[in-house]
């Protein structure tokens, strides 16, 4: 049993991971660093960071709002709202991109209006950010809702009877109570946002230096048979994935929480 597990984990997980780094460094450190310093790679890094820096905070604010409303209150339509929050998880990433093309593309519902006002969403960073936001929509909310629900309302009520305002109650009592779940959700949201491919590829147009995120850049390099460069960029993303896993394990050890 143990041997079988080690073989499975080795073949399915460890081997691909090793291959990324070995292929990236196949021709030595020089070409590896060179690939990372290409202007197009640098532009992709910048766009990916910009995307993450907008999409993740947006979904975090949404996640906290949705969790506060659904976990601390009961209202008609609450379970419908909970179902709708999960909806983006069941939708193919390609469809997540497609919906914005239909809305904002040149032939889309708002396309002519956007064009008349000289605004560009599709084949522009705005579309990439929107599609990424859609795909990572539920990640923070899903982590927070069960945790906040399990904590109930006693702590908040106690703070209110002691004279705290609503904002003070949230900042000093609720937020510290959910900090690990929040961090966990943000990390998962972040990982997914940085790595999103399908949705982004539909809305990006893949204009080098302008609308190329890191995963899209990997694809282009790979399709141009620049294997070392493709894997060099891929290794950056893989390192980030490993960092995510390490942080995740750290939070789990710290809070003694079960797996999601």
């Amino acid at each position: 049993m143990v041997t079988l597990t080690l073989v499975l984990v080795g073949l399915l997980l460890l081997l691909p991971l090793l291959l990324v780094f070995i292929t990236a460094l196949r021709s030595g450190l020089g070409p590896y660093l060179q690939a990372l310093q290409l202007p197009d790679t640098q532009a992709a890094v910048r766009l990916s960071l910009l995307t993450v820096l907008i999409a993740v905070p947006l979904n975090t604010v949404f996640g906290v709002s949705a969790a506060w409303a659904t976990a601390k209150f009961d209202f008609p339509g609450r379970s419908l709202l909970l179902t709708l929050i999960d909806l983006p998880l069941a939708i193919s990433p390609v469809i997540s991109g497609l919906v914005y093309v239909l809305l904002f593309g040149r032939q889309g519902w708002l396309g002519p209006w956007l064009e008349a006002n000289d605004l560009k969403i599709i084949f522009a960073p705005a579309g990439i950010i929107l599609a990424t936001t859609f795909v990572t929509f539920a990640y923070v909310a899903r982590e927070l809702i069960p945790v906040m629900q399990a904590q109930g309302r006693d702590d908040e009520e106690a703070a209110l009877t002691l004279g705290a305002s609503g904002w003070q109650t949230f900042m000093r009592v609720t937020l510290p109570n959910i900090r690990w779940a929040l961090l966990y959700g943000v990390i998962m949201c972040n990982a997914r946002a940085l790595g999103e491919f399908g949705a982004v590829s539909v809305v990006s147009g893949k204009i080098r230096g302008l609308t190329n995120t890191l995963p899209l850049h990997v694809e282009i390099l790979y399709n141009e048979y620049q294997t070392v460069a493709a894997f060099a960029v891929a290794s950056l993303l893989a390192l980030f994935a490993l960092l995510t896993l390490a942080l995740k394990a750290l939070i789990e050890a710290r809070t003694g929480r079960a797996h999601t």
Partner: peptide
């Protein structure tokens, strides 16, 4: 055990494009 346990989520954390080119090369 802890290392393997953490590694289980690799497919989730690794960008799908990276998984794609890696598995293809493999």
């Amino acid at each position: 055990r802890r290392l393997i346990d953490a590694l289980i989520d690799l497919p989730f954390a690794l960008p799908t494009a990276v998984a794609g080119i890696t598995l293809t090369t493999l």
